[in-house]
Amino acid sequence: MRILWFVLSPLMALAVGLFFLGLSRRFMARIQWRVGPPLYQPLIDILRQFTQKSVSHGPLFDLGVVLSLASSFIVVLFMPLGGTAPLSSSGGFLVVLYLMLLGPLGIALSGGEAANPNVSIGISRKLILALGYEVPFLMIVLALMTYYGTISIGEIVAAQRESASAIASFPLVFSGIAYLLILPAMLGVRPFEVVGAAQEISSGPAAEYGGPYLALATIQHGLTMFIGISLFVNLLWGGASNPVVFFLKMLVVFAFGFWVNAAFPRLRVEQAVRYLWRWPTLIAFVGLILVATIGR
């Protein structure tokens, strides 16, 4: 059973991630009163990109994309997707925190090799933005670990299954709100879209990717979206007992994220950091203090 999950969960992440990419384009199109592309448009794009020729800028350019994609797949293995996670140990969550940084880092390494100024600007913006949301995110994580007394995602999910889900229980509701506030930044959608701004810096870190590289980067983007949403569902919404319910819960969070994407204009990077270090950090800090003083 566990062997099966080793194969199933990356495949599920891939499928759901690509589905979300297609759904997001369709979703935005409907909000903008357009028809929009078919749901399988990302598949067509990826097929087209894989069959195009491309140039490589060096060995690190090739390896960085692979590193980023591989780390995203490994993170997926640690994630209980409505069942047991294939790789779950007591320290699973800490590993996930480290591995999640490898995604942007791989893209940064790869883009750095290309020596395109737009890529460099995009990467520096991405790292600054990561600095912005990592602070409240670590506070949320710390509050959850303190509250449930464990550093395993699986045990956090199991504990929520016994009582209420975290976002519905008193001290942790602050952490939940803070997570919702930083979720667009973690997904990289509109108010925090400045990393890959197509009009200003020619899509930022992806500016030098063409052909298969772009296909891999697109898949990585889908996986990042999948991880960000599934982490929220697992940590704060009590996971799910089967993949279908898990997927439906993810869909709700996704709809929230893309509603924000459609409704808000883009923030400059210093405005984004000012926002992220003010309200989400404050609320997450209040949550952490409450958890530390009141406890369970």
Partner: peptide
């Protein structure tokens, strides 16, 4: 006119 329904979208760089 919504060209995206036919998969026609503008991209930022020539590589893509």
């Amino acid at each position: 006119w919504d060209a995206e329904r036919f998969g026609v979208v503008p991209t930022a760089t020539a590589r893509q």
